[in-house]
Design a protein around this nucleic acid. Structure first.
Length: 866
RNA sequence: GCCGGUGUGGCGGAAUGGUAGACGCAUGCGACUCAAAAUCGCACGCAGCAAUGCAUGUCAGUUCGAGUCUGACCACCGGCACCA
């Protein structure tokens, strides 16, 4: 039995648990993706699923609150909303726990998931838990393996030996995208280069599509698109072949400046270039080899350090210029990167800063072939001086270039490329910075790569019927195996029979990068229990792309590009329902970080806020309300304990304002009309205020659009939603009294206007604070769940105020103001303004040049002295 | 260096080209209370007793009117960086 006292106090903990259980029992958030409501449109709202690290942090709370509010609003607006949740549950920390604490990775992972799932439930998120997926379970990773084979069969997965990034701490290779400033993205260890045979996904096959499609993603933040574009970095240039004198070899170089071809004075090869060994003159061999060794010993970071002095040694051999036939010395220099272009460059010292620096240092000739256009006075016009401070790198007019003299750079690029192509000395070439995605990992806790090596048949794909290739038990592997996958230590796993010839064979022992698992989870959520295929393409056609995706900016390149690659590759095989369905995420919101008192939360600083503590003290509604309040979602959010207090106070006020009047409020009463003349002035004011709040909040959640330049990035302005809810509650608590009749000043709580205000408030608050609004809704006798109610719609007639404050300006400066009835004619406004004593005084001895009148807003007198 | 973003009180932040600082936090004063907490009320950009003046990173421009539009610059944050 609850006592009167308890009924009157706001005790979030008991309310929240009760409603969470009730909603779950009523399957309020479960949907059938195969049969969405016939009437409603679908809306797929997805937050990036978490890695089960142990417990939620405030970044999760912010991410998932944003997604939950969007989902709940869309549902009230009539959409069939899919909001699933799952776990990105393969990964290294589980393995480290196994090593350090002797817990099996699976046990550690499942324990964390159980705890974190409980936290998500206590926060009241409206997930359809029947769709939960764990990427580490074989009913999921069997399809990750299936998709690997799908890519393999389409030539998009291949194995090759290549210099790869090796992290000495994680004891595994890394993708290019996982190396930041030469260091491992996870632990900051200096990455080493190793030559290994590894599996790659051919992301470069989609380089153009990944780049070009960015333009269609109008719902993505500009900075994410820019980051991806620069990562892919397409450049259009020319490959030029240089024959080597007295040799059968030729060196291909890549250049974007074919117009400078006649200015080439040497060639430079990367130390790793395979031809170095073949074209070095015997007398130079010792010096070249020692230079190569030196380069090898330097770390990636050292080699690319900013402002480093360029070095190199000559090979003693010469190349023939493809047009002039002149002999050009060949050098090896470590400023040339082995893995961009052809690993060799034609050096044009006069027009490239790096080549210029190198030529100066080693006294190589500098030939100017581009002069600044005549109408451009920036460049140094005096020709061939030896003491130029630097290279002229802009476009210009060709000189010293024989038949090409006088052309401008753009025309020259084209004509020189044509000239070379006709003689088979070169060709136009597109070059990307993007590399193929290295997906092999020498780790245990990941999806095994479903490949078998047979002595007779070679590399053989595991047949679909034999999937999943299951991970062995953690007891049977040695996690400490250095430099190779722990799976290689498990004979029972390694030794198998060839699916082709049934002869002895061994399994691939590497597992897949966990980013492979997370590249397709948004597809599985639509059809999570399918046992015959990863997902039904017909369902994908209906639900994809994800309407709203929400997550951290740290995935701007990694996850978001891999997922786009997957979707494109699947679209080409018809697995996404139709070929056009090739982008996974229509709208993307990248939320800012959660800070504490202006600083990044970190364990070492001891300023981490634990969501559990907040839940215990204030409840989920307060936590949700606060994290939505102070900053727009894209900006960083500063967690302040006093701010949480303020939000808790606010919800207590809502509780009081609503429940004080609960016997008088009638939620089923029809909404009063603003035209009803029996309403008092104050009642009309509250009615207008309520409609204005509905209109304002509805606008804030649709994203900003200005008439002149629609901002297509829908931004959810939940911080201003919070402000508007506070204003409405302020207004209500100021004007409401409890059934004290006869007062004209205040609003009787029993009047229909008050009931309307209360029901609107609860509906507007429901997506943000689902528990308190549900509780109050029921206490006031509302029918059904509040989350099933229709989103309120503002009455345009009630948005017009009765009075307007008109501002009077003189020469644009504010001088006075007055109140008038709305829509008072211009002439009357001007006349009234002139007669204001203050204005009249100021207008003396002035000539009015012009008067601007904006109805309901202002009167501006433009004056000058007589 | 290149690319992107952001600059508004003590703080987080509001402002369809039309009253800059909504809403909140912090602070101060007052009411209630034996007292405290809670709650409620008032004040709160800067200078000034006031009238008033000055204020949205800086400098120009457009406009009757600019935080908002245009141009140049500065600062900070983020991404990439010897990419030929």
């Amino acid at each position: 039995m609850t006592t009167i006292l308890q009924q009157n106090a706001y005790t979030p903990q008991s309310i929240e648990a009760k409603w969470q259980a009730t909603w779950q029992a009523a399957k309020l958030h479960a949907i059938d993706t195969a049969n969405p409501e016939p009437s409603g449109e679908t809306f797929y709202c997805l937050s990036m699923f978490p890695y089960p690290s142990g417990r939620l942090h405030m970044g999760h709370v912010r991410n998932y609150t944003l997604g939950d509010v969007v989902s709940r609003i869309k549902r009230m607006q009539g959409y069939t909303v899919l909001q699933p949740m799952g776990w990105d549950s393969f990964g290294l920390p589980a393995e480290n726990a196994a090593i350090q604490r002797n817990i099996a990775p699976e046990a550690w992972t499942l324990e964390n998931i159980a705890y974190m799932r409980g936290q998500l439930q206590r926060l009241g998120f409206a997930y359809d838990w029947s769709r939960e997926v764990l990427t580490c379970q074989d009913d999921y990773y069997r399809w990750t393996q299936w998709l690997f084979l799908y890519l393999y069969q389409r030539g998009l997965a291949y194995k090759k030996e290549a210099p790869v990034n090796w992290c000495p701490i994680d004891q595994t290779v890394l993708a290019n995208e996982q190396v930041i400033d030469g260091k491992c993205w996870r632990d900051g260890a200096l990455v080493e280069k190793k030559r290994l045979s590894q599996w790659f996904f051919k992301t470069t096959a989609y380089a153009d599509q990944l780049l070009d499609n960015l333009e269609t993603l109008s719902g993505w933040p500009e900075r994410v698109k820019t980051m991806q574009a620069r990562w892919i970095d397409r450049s259009l240039g020319t490959e030029v072949k240089f024959d080597i004198a007295d040799s059968d070899f030729a060196i291909d170089v890549y250049t974007t400046r074919a117009d400078t071809l006649m200015g080439v004075t040497y060639l430079a090869l990367a130390p790793e270039h395979p031809l170095v060994a073949h074209v070095t003159r015997p007398e130079h061999l010792a010096a070249v080899e020692s230079y190569q060794q030196e380069a090898k010993n330097k770390s990636e970071l050292d080699r690319t350090a900013e402002g480093r002095e360029k070095t190199g040694v000559p090979l003693g051999s010469y190349a023939k210029h493809p047009i002039s036939g002149k002999l050009i010395p060949i050098w090896v220099a470590d400023y040339v990167l082995a893995d961009y272009g052809t690993g060799a460059v034609m050096a044009v010292a006069a027009h490239d800063e790096r080549d210029f620096e190198f030529a100066k240092k080693y006294n190589l000739p500098i030939i100017e072939v581009i002069s600044a256009p005549a109408n451009c006075d920036s460049g140094d016009q005096s020709s061939l001086s030896n003491d130029k401070p630097g290279a002229y790198t802009d476009k210009g007019i060709l000189i010293n270039s024989g038949d090409f003299d006088g052309l401008d750079s753009d025309a020259a690029k084209e004509q020189i490329t044509q000239f070379l192509t006709a003689r088979q000395l070169g060709q136009a070439k597109v070059q990307y910075r993007l590399r193929d995605w290295l997906v092999s990992r020498q780790r245990f806790w990941g999806a095994p790569i479903p490949i078998v090596y047979c002595e007779k048949c070679g590399t053989v794909a595991v047949p679909e019927s034999e999937l999943p290739v299951k991970l062995p038990s953690a007891h049977d592997v040695d996690f400490q195996a250095k430099g190779k996958s722990p799976l290689a230590s498990c004979d029972a796993f390694v030794n198998t029979v060839c699916p082709n010839c049934e002869g002895p064979a061994t399994r691939e022992t590497d597992t897949m990068d966990t980013f492979v698992c997370s590249s397709w989870y948004y597809l599985r959520f639509v059809d999570p229990h399918n046992t015959s295929q990863p997902f039904d393409p017909a369902l994908i056609a209906r639900w994809l792309p994800v309407d709203q995706y929400i997550g951290g900016i740290e995935h701007a390149i990694l996850h978001l590009m891999y997922a786009r690659f997957f979707m494109m590759a699947l679209a080409d095989g018809g697995l996404t329902g139709c070929k056009e369905n090739q982008e996974p995420f229509k709208q993307l919101l990248t939320q800012g970080m959660v800070l504490k008192d202006g600083a990044k939360m970190s364990k070492s600083k001891g300023n981490v806020v634990d969501p559990d503590e907040i839940l215990k003290t204030y409840g989920a509604d307060t936590a949700r309300f606060f994290i939505l309040s102070d900053s727009p979602p894209q900006a960083d959010f500063d967690w302040k304990d006093s701010g949480v207090e303020g939000c808790f106070r606010f919800l207590q006020r809502v509780w009081r304002v609503v429940s004080d009047a609960r016997s008088l409020v009638n939620l089923s009463a029809p909404a009063p009309s603003i035209l009803d003349d029996t309403l008092t002035g104050n009642q009309k004011d509250l009615l207008r205020m309520t409609h204005q709040t509905i209109a304002g909040i509805s606008r804030d959640i649709e994203g900003k659009t200005s008439a002149s330049e629609p901002d297509l990035n829908a931004s959810f302005q939940f911080n201003t939603v919070v402000s508007k809810l506070r204003e409405l509650v302020n207004f209500m608590s100021k004007h409401a009294i409890q059934s004290e009749p006869g007062s004209q000043e205040n609003i009787d709580s029993s009047c229909p206007v008050y009931s309307f205000a209360v029901s609107s408030l609860l509906k507007l608050l429901a997506p943000l604070c689902p528990h308190i609004s549900e509780e109050l809704w029921h206490r006031l006798g509302g029918s059904g769940f509040i989350h099933e109610q229709a989103w309120p719609v503002a009455d345009p007639a009630a948005l017009v105020a009765e009075h307007a404050t008109v501002v009077v300006q003189i020469n644009g400066k504010l001088r006075d103001q007055f109140e008038v009835a709305t829509d008072t004619p211009k002439e009357a406004l001007e006349a009234t303004a002139r007669l204001l004593p203050k204005i009249a005084g100021l207008l003396e001895k002035q000539t009015i040049v012009k008067t601007i009148v904006v109805p309901n807003k202002l009167v501006n007198f433009v004056v000058k002295p007589i």
